[in-house]
């Protein structure tokens, strides 16, 4: 079982792996062949060298960003979840607020960041608010979708046997919505890293975003690339973390996709 899944993983993993390897080789070769200057486009080997030589400072900034991301992600997701539950349980609230919620997504959250800095200063609070705003929406909407898609036969069954509203919510609607809640959480996880970096661009004394701004003014393109790689890795790690938690929480062959795929037949 484990062996075959490992095999399967290997089989699906090697084509993209080779593709990345080829891309990096082409990049390296092109930079050397055309003699492109490092401040425009450094070669992968130069980036790797720079990353390892400034590892300790990068590590410090990474930790700071990670901390900010996790706090923001936790608060934003919790908030999104609570709002979804509240709107679902109080239909009037939903019909009043749901359209506004959708509309509010036309306001680019990122553009609010400078405003938040003015109001709340350069501390942790405005940054956490930015990440919260970014995380909140995907979690709230996908969780509400999950609630709304509750299986009609199961709902009918619960009503027929006399289940109360809270029982229907706890025993049916909430567990039923878990897969789609997690797909919202996965999106929020990657968004939260982006939110943290942008918040750091606008005002911070440390963090990967701050580091990027600093290196930009020094034209250290190699260091900017190193920072980008760290951002990608952070996003991936958070994504994997959410997937891992989903595996522990969602049972009965429903993980991954949010739909039922006919398996209940």
């Amino acid at each position: 079982m484990t062996r075959s899944t490992l095999n399967q993983w290997f089989r699906s993993a090697w084509p993209p792996f080779v593709a990345v390897l080829l891309f990096l080789t082409a990049w390296e070769a092109a930079v050397r062949f055309f003699g492109i200057e490092a401040w425009i486009l450094p070669s992968p080997s130069v980036i790797a060298q720079e990353a390892s030589s400034s590892a300790s400072s990068l590590w410090m900034h990474t930790l700071s960003t990670l901390q900010l991301t996790l706090i923001g992600f936790a608060i934003g997701s919790t908030f999104g979840l609570l709002v979804a539950c509240a709107l679902h349980l109080v239909p009037l609230l939903k019909s009043a607020l749901y359209p506004l919620l959708i509309l509010s997504q036309n306001v680019p959250t990122i553009a609010l960041a400078p405003l938040l800095m003015i109001w709340f200063g350069f501390g942790l609070l405005p940054k956490i608010i930015v990440i919260t705003l970014v995380c909140f929406f995907p979690v709230a909407v996908s969780t509400m979708d999950g609630f709304a898609q509750t299986d009609r036969t199961m709902l009918n069954y619960m009503r027929m046997i006399g289940a109360k509203r809270t029982q229907i919510f706890r025993k049916l609607e909430f567990p039923h919505a878990l897969p789609s809640m997690f797909s919202g959480l996965r999106i929020a996880a990657t968004y939260s890293v982006m939110g943290a970096v942008i918040a750091e661009w606008i005002g911070a004394q440390k963090g990967i975003g701050y580091y990027m701004i600093l290196q930009k003014s020094a034209f250290r393109t190699d260091r900017i690339f190193a920072a980008i790689i760290i951002i990608v890795v952070l996003s991936l790690l958070l994504f994997l973390l959410v997937t891992l938690i989903e595996r522990l929480v969602v049972r009965g062959g429903r993980r991954g996709a949010s739909s039922e795929g006919g398996e209940s037949r």
């Binding site: 009918n156 069954y157 009965g252």
Partner: peptide, 18 residues
Amino acid sequence: ERGHIGYMPQQPALFPWR
């Protein structure tokens, strides 16, 4: 009034996570 009968629907409607 609800909650006076046992019920079996057309589809089994078993909860997949249980």
